[in-house]
Simulated scan of single mutants.
Amino acid sequence: MLDCLAGTCARLTAPRKYLSQWGWYKLVLPTLASLPLLMVYYINQGSTTVVVPRLLRAWMGGTLNIGVLYYIYMSMLAVFCTNAINIYAGINGLESGQAVVVGASVAVFNMIELGGFQAKSHFFSLCVIIPFTITSLGLFIHNRYPAKAFVGDTFTYFAGMTFAVVAIIGHFSKTVLLFFIPQIFNFLYSVPQLFHFVPCPRHRLPQYNKKLDKLEPSVVEFRDTSVQWQVMAALRLLKYLRLVHLEEGVGEDGKLCRVNNLTLVNLVLVLIGPQHEGSLTTKLLVIQGLCSGLALFIRYPLADLFF
């Protein structure tokens, strides 16, 4: 009887342990949370038609209705937005600060579009994004270095879903991704560790140098035989491009490799050297702001060349 109960408990807890290990709940929960949002979009007769670039219009026409694929895309957008801010984090003020910059960028875009044919949708977005941005600014004041308040996953998921809501209901789901350029780069840069091609520690935060009172890039060590040769070739290419700090042949037996944890925060430290935490946050938020300027350039002058 006891053996039977033990076996039943093992079968019940194993999936939970497996999901926790791989963090699949970070994919499942935002997907489920996006379903009411997609229902609202459907009830309001949201369009599933996309504009075809000029180069392809001779074969595909001016527009293309992709139907249910557009709903899948919007659900994936909600998943990405909720997790993108969460994995681009770890130092005082970065999570709340990037939410302020992205929120302000979305508000600027909405105000530019108020005179267009989607004015009502952009007005709705402004009614949501302005209070969110202002309250996030207040949070940033307390969350910046030295932090008096910590945001945790609760705020990052809430912020990401807020951007997904205004983008989907406001009918600018593709444009909002342009304001996530640093987050997209951070995700792509993190892929080798997120999918465990390279060992991924539980925390990939920069390491604190007490003597210098500065942050330095954190590293992960692994044996060169524990990863596939394609992964090592990719890391060597990134080293050549100065996008990683890779050391090979370290350790007593000369078979260990050491590479910085693959996050944008660590990459900036690799490129510019150790930084004070407050100064590092400021530099990262300046990058976020510059990317928002680039996003508006892509959305208006550049897009006119292709659409």
Rank of each mutant, 00 (worst) to 15 (best):
residue 154 T to H: 03
residue 30 P to H: 09
residue 266 N to I: 10
residue 260 N to R: 12
residue 203 H to E: 08
residue 252 E to I: 08
residue 216 E to R: 07
residue 204 R to N: 05
residue 265 V to Q: 04
residue 76 M to H: 06
residue 239 K to S: 14
residue 91 I to L: 06
residue 276 H to W: 09
residue 307 F to W: 11
residue 144 R to N: 09
residue 301 P to I: 07
residue 16 R to N: 09
residue 207 Q to L: 08
residue 94 L to V: 04
residue 109 F to E: 02
residue 223 R to Q: 05
residue 279 S to E: 14
residue 292 S to W: 02
residue 216 E to N: 02
residue 245 H to A: 14
residue 9 C to S: 03
residue 107 A to G: 15
residue 92 N to E: 12
residue 286 V to P: 08
residue 277 E to K: 13
residue 62 G to T: 12
residue 32 L to D: 00
residue 111 M to I: 13
residue 251 G to P: 13
residue 151 V to A: 13
residue 71 Y to M: 12
residue 262 L to M: 15
residue 59 W to V: 07
residue 14 A to C: 10
residue 76 M to E: 12
residue 175 T to F: 06
residue 152 G to C: 04
residue 284 L to D: 05
residue 160 G to L: 08
residue 7 G to T: 13
residue 145 Y to L: 01
residue 77 L to F: 03
residue 284 L to T: 03
residue 167 A to E: 05
residue 178 L to Q: 02
residue 60 M to K: 08
residue 56 L to C: 09
residue 213 D to A: 05
residue 258 R to W: 10
residue 187 F to A: 08
residue 254 G to P: 11
residue 213 D to K: 12
residue 284 L to H: 02
residue 101 V to S: 01
residue 184 I to V: 15
residue 202 R to C: 05
residue 61 G to F: 11
residue 223 R to Y: 12
residue 146 P to A: 09
residue 67 G to Y: 07
residue 168 I to H: 11
residue 178 L to P: 01
residue 101 V to A: 05
residue 183 Q to F: 11
residue 272 I to G: 06
residue 173 S to E: 15
residue 78 A to I: 06
residue 287 I to H: 06
residue 26 K to M: 10
residue 292 S to M: 12
residue 154 T to W: 07
residue 25 Y to E: 15
residue 145 Y to W: 13
residue 90 G to K: 01
residue 84 A to I: 13
residue 240 Y to V: 12
residue 247 E to V: 01
residue 78 A to G: 07
residue 137 L to I: 09
residue 50 V to Q: 09
residue 156 T to A: 11
residue 303 A to F: 14
residue 277 E to P: 05
residue 135 T to F: 15
residue 237 L to I: 05
residue 98 Q to R: 09
residue 244 V to G: 02
residue 152 G to K: 03
residue 25 Y to P: 03
residue 202 R to G: 03
residue 237 L to E: 03
residue 107 A to N: 09
residue 81 C to L: 15
residue 59 W to G: 07
residue 196 H to S: 11
residue 279 S to K: 13
residue 236 R to L: 02
residue 33 A to T: 03
residue 174 K to A: 09
residue 279 S to G: 10
residue 98 Q to A: 05
residue 274 P to S: 05
residue 81 C to M: 15
residue 30 P to L: 04
residue 126 L to S: 10
residue 166 V to A: 04
residue 229 W to A: 01
residue 89 A to R: 01
residue 203 H to Y: 13
residue 53 P to S: 10
residue 79 V to I: 14
residue 40 V to Y: 12
residue 269 L to K: 01
residue 264 L to T: 11
residue 258 R to T: 08
residue 157 Y to I: 12
residue 16 R to W: 13
